[in-house]
Design a protein around this nucleic acid. Structure first.
Length: 573
RNA sequence: CGGGGUGUGGCUCAGGUGGUAGAGUGCUUGGUUCGGGACCAAGAGGCCGUGGGUUCGAGUCCCGCCACUCCGACCA
């Protein structure tokens, strides 16, 4: 491609709307343009990368034995009504009606439609196992689209669904997808970590997420360097450390009510009592569906709403409003405690080990001190409902865990029979008996993966594409387009590389060299061949985007080096 | 959904107390330049988000709406 003909534009300044590196760079380098909040158009340069990511995913899915098909994005409501998700998705689903008033949605994910389709085609155990996939546009009306294409309202997802006779079969299908995902993210040049994930209140026997470590990630990852344990922080199990081994602490002191007129937050209470947050227990009032419950965690802890939801088996969970809190506790917000509460009290397992701690007295302006569980109040349930923190013991080996943030680029999930039962997707076994198929589902965000590659591969000058997904492998820059020696040599290199299957840009614009270098760096082409003053002797400069220095070499050598590098960069191991 | 911010040329942004719309950058043309976003000159390009109000007169003041964005809540 000659740049003089290419539909693209680079921006010198960072568009005000972009906060993170990948978003800024995607806009500045002209890969894409925003159409509306969370909705983007890809321009030619960006679409080339997009298609390469897609293609890598496709190749690995095919290699794993999955079969590609494509379904509509515009979907009738019935299957979603049958699974119950027509309601569950709520406002996140884009809904519309046809001229006859029939309800449709723009598909947010396709479990129901795949299940329904398989059900109507496959009836025999002989046809199983089966894994189908598509690379298709999804729509979710996110409450808060963010970070460009990282969290957008329209995005392309590779979604795969496996159908097996039994759990052993599912394990095999799942493992194939797991391996395929590793190959995909390796080929994309991503530094990722695989973590155990929450399977939600609806069950399912296992789930893992592929996370790209990044400070802008929205999911917390807890991992252990000692034993390799890694889990989403919603999922990571917390184990109890005894509060202390000292005798004084373990002796139960007598309960005391203390006037704490202006102290209602943990910080204020710490000042008032002059002790650390570890000596308090927070009592949080929650609305779980239509039920009001209390949940207790230590003062320096965060309650893990996912764990609490799973424990309660509820669909919706939110902090109770102040009116409800006052009604249930009989006190203003900030003075809730477990003693005398009429509602269920879910106690974090760590709190159950505490002695002589401080809680609200359910009376405005008062707290209790020297509180002890069982003596002063009873827990409805004692369970791990807190979020793991850096330095907490690893649930596997006990070594201190680390906590970092990650971008979820892939998710694999053992669904079990949730959808096959709801939609009556069954097969006949050897005995002529009907059984529900055992399903798995597997997703990769194409746009998000692309953004994640940029997030991990950039510097102050722009993007640094890995060869495997670069929009072009090589950019040839004649320094002076009016110099016929330079132009002739550049054209020669350009056409020879193209002839050997290398994807090449020729910057034939009549621009100053600085402009061309800046653009080449910004759009991140991995290999740059500069044809300058020594063109007459056939000498050019060979420079890699990720390295600082170039080497002077003959044009022939440069061509060979580029061909070799591209071959290796695209090689599939 | 709650709270904050911003809407002026493709992009980044100026436009006290109301008086005919600006800069930089990008774009076009000509010239001088030519190895890391050159310089000079001449141009093109704006329902100042939108609807209403106040006023002789509104980019500017008042009210409504919309969009974008940040923080929070939420997130199969």
């Amino acid at each position: 491609m000659r740049i003089s003909n290419m539909f693209f534009q680079t921006l010198r300044e960072v568009p005000a709307e972009a906060e993170i590196a990948s978003h800024q760079l995607m806009l500045r380098s002209g890969l894409m343009r925003k159409l509306a909040s969370g909705i983007y158009s890809f321009l030619p340069l960006g679409y080339r990368v997009f298609r390469k990511v897609e293609q890598i995913v496709r190749e690995e899915m095919d290699r794993a034995g999955a079969q590609e098909l494509i379904m509509s994005a515009l979907l009738p409501a019935e299957a979603y009504q049958a699974s119950g998700r027509w309601e569950v998705f709520g406002a996140e689903m884009f809904r519309l009606k046809d001229r006859g008033g029939r309800e449709f949605c723009l598909g947010p994910t396709h479990e129901e439609i795949f299940t329904d389709t398989v059900k109507s085609v496959t009836r025999s155990y002989r046809s199983l196992p089966l894994t189908l996939y598509q690379i298709q546009t999804k729509y979710r009306d996110e409450r808060r689209p963010r970070f460009g294409v990282m969290r957008s309202r329209e995005f392309v997802m590779k979604d795969a669904y496996s159908f097996d006779r039994d759990d052993e079969g599912l394990d095999i299908s799942y493992k194939k997808m797991y391996d395929a995902y590793c190959r995909i993210f390796d080929r994309l040049g991503l530094d990722y970590i695989i973590v155990d994930a929450d399977t939600g209140a609806m069950g399912g026997s296992g789930s893992q997420e592929f996370m790209v470590k990044s400070s802008i990630g929205e999911s917390g990852i807890a991992y252990c360097e000692a034993c390799g344990y890694a889990a989403n922080d919603e999922k990571a199990e917390c184990i109890v450390q005894k509060c202390c081994e000292g005798e004084k602490c373990c002796e139960e002191l007598s309960l005391e009510k203390v006037a704490t007129p202006d102290a209602r937050t943990i910080d204020e209470l710490m000042d008032f009592f002059g002790c650390s947050a570890r000596e308090f227990a927070k009592t949080l009032i929650y609305k779980a569906d239509d039920k009001v419950v209390a949940a207790m965690v230590r003062g320096d802890r965060e309650l893990n709403e996912t764990k609490l939801m799973n424990l309660l088996g509820c669909i919706e969970l939110e902090m109770a409003d102040s009116e409800t809190v006052e009604k249930v506790t009989g006190a203003a917000v900030g003075f809730a405690g477990p003693i005398g509460l009429k509602i269920d009290v879910i106690v974090d397992s760590e709190v159950a080990e505490m002695k002589n701690f401080v809680v609200g007295a359910n009376e405005t302006g008062y707290h209790y001190k020297n509180v002890n569980i069982n003596r002063d109040f009873k827990a409805t349930v004692v369970k791990d409902i807190r979020t793991i923190k850096e330095g907490d013991p690893c649930p596997k080996c006990g070594a201190p865990v680390k906590v970092e943030f990650g971008i979820e680029v892939g998710h694999i999930f053992k669904l079990g029979t949730k959808y096959s039962k709801a939609l009556d997707c069954v097969y006949l076994d050897e005995n002529g008996k009907e059984n529900p198929m055992i399903m798995g589902c597997y997703g990769i965000g194409i746009n998000r993966s692309m953004a994640a590659v940029i997030e991990q591969n950039n510097d102050e000058n722009g993007i640094i594409w890995p060869i495997s997904v670069a929009p072009y492998h090589v950019i040839v820059i004649p320094v002076n387009t009016t110099d016929s020696d330079q132009m002739e040599l550049a054209e020669k290199i350009y056409s020879q590389l193209i002839a050997s299957g290398v994807e090449v840009l020729l910057d034939d614009r009549d621009e100053r060299p600085g402009v061309k270098f800046k653009d080449a760096d910004l759009i991140g082409i991995p290999i740059r061949i500069t044809v300058g003053k020594k063109a007459k002797e056939g000498i050019v400069e060979y420079k890699r985007r990720k390295e600082k220095d170039f080497t002077a070499t003959t044009a022939e050598e440069a061509i060979e080096m580029a061909q070799k590098e591209v071959r290796e960069g695209c090689a599939v191991k």
